[in-house]
Design a protein around this nucleic acid. Structure first.
Length: 290
DNA sequence: CAGGTATCCTGTCCGC
DNA sequence: TGCGGACAGGATACCT
């Protein structure tokens, strides 16, 4: 479900209430969620993390994000990483449904009333992993992730694009760059005027500059709108985002292109529903400008 | 081996 | 109303 903007909205929400607060684990499970994470196979199924690994008794030092991964760092160094998968939520509000809560903490701020923090994930595609330190997380857990999509520029993107696969497939590959999912891949390709089925290695340097700028713009704008709420995404307070109102490609199959008026096309690309404008995103690389 | 695709889950929506 | 099927924001094991 959530892509970079949704995770960042959650991180910013947590950063307002968690630093300095004491975490006490109230519940773990009951579902058989796996301790997933890069470098650990979900098949090794360490079943579930321990209370200590879930930061029981720790004070929160800082919140981090790389791509779609969210990390809560304790002041003793421990780090808990939450991957939200397709339907994950991190919430502090009382209205968070009781169903599908996989982790629950009592949060005791230095000042003010205690409240409950929970990690929900109905579809259970998400996961949790634990690290001794932020350094270990970055060196191991996040080693296979590409640069964060908010920090991408033309030359950096150009250096990472290769292969005959579709540019959209490359954008969705978290080892190429981290944070882009199905919504924002379509949005950025539309904004850059690049056809989603173009081969990754055929994207010229000037097009990489346009695409990198489009990625940054689209993602940063969505962060400012607190992410896209299609069905599941809500902020830590249960409030929806508003970035979906600005979508010009995702979810607009058959509707007129906002730029030229032609009906938006749709097809499966890289196994995902993809929407684009054949006129504004030509298959050939001939287009210049914009 | 790079690249396609089957699959893990639950919830929702749509057509019959 | 009820039910079957399609589909959903992700990641990866397993084919080719």
């Amino acid at each position: 479900m959530p892509e970079l903007p949704e995770i960042e909205a959650i991180r910013l929400g947590l950063a307002r209430v968690l630093p300095g607060a004491l975490l006490q684990v109230r519940a773990i499970g009951p579902h058989d969620m796996r301790a997933r994470g890069r470098g650990r196979s979900s098949r090794t199924a360490a079943a579930w993390i321990t209370r200590a690994q879930a930061l029981d008794g720790a004070r929160v030092a800082a919140l981090h994000r790389h791509g779609k991964q969210l990390a809560i760092q304790a002041d003793d160094g421990r780090v808990l990483v939450l991957q939200l998968g397709m339907s994950g939520q991190v919430r502090t509000d009382r209205d968070a449904p009781a169903a599908h809560r996989h982790l629950e903490w009592t949060v005791r701020p230095r000042r003010g009333a205690a409240f409950t923090l929970c990690f929900r994930d109905p579809r259970r595609f998400g996961g949790v992993s634990w690290w001794r330190s932020l350094e270990a997380l970055r060196a191991e857990g996040w080693a296979d992730l590409g640069p964060d999509a908010l920090a991408i520029d033309g030359p950096l993107l150009a250096a990472r694009l290769a292969g005959i696969r579709a540019i959209k497939a490359a954008l969705l590959d978290q080892s190429v760059l981290a944070g882009v999912g199905n919504i924002y891949a379509d949005e950025a390709l539309f904004a850059a005027g690049i056809h989603p089925k173009r081969r990754a290695r055929s994207i010229r340097p000037d097009e990489c500059v346009r695409l990198a700028r489009a990625l940054r713009d689209v993602l940063a704008r969505a962060v400012r709108s607190n992410g896209s709420t299609l069905r599941d995404h809500v902020g830590v307070g249960g409030d929806p985002g508003a970035a979906q109102h600005a979508h010009r490609a995702y979810g607009r199959a058959g509707q007129p292109c906002t730029r030229c008026g032609e009906p938006m096309r749709t097809a499966q690309v890289a196994g995902r529903t993809t929407v684009w404008c054949e006129g504004c995103q030509p298959r050939s690389a001939a287009r210049t400008g914009r």
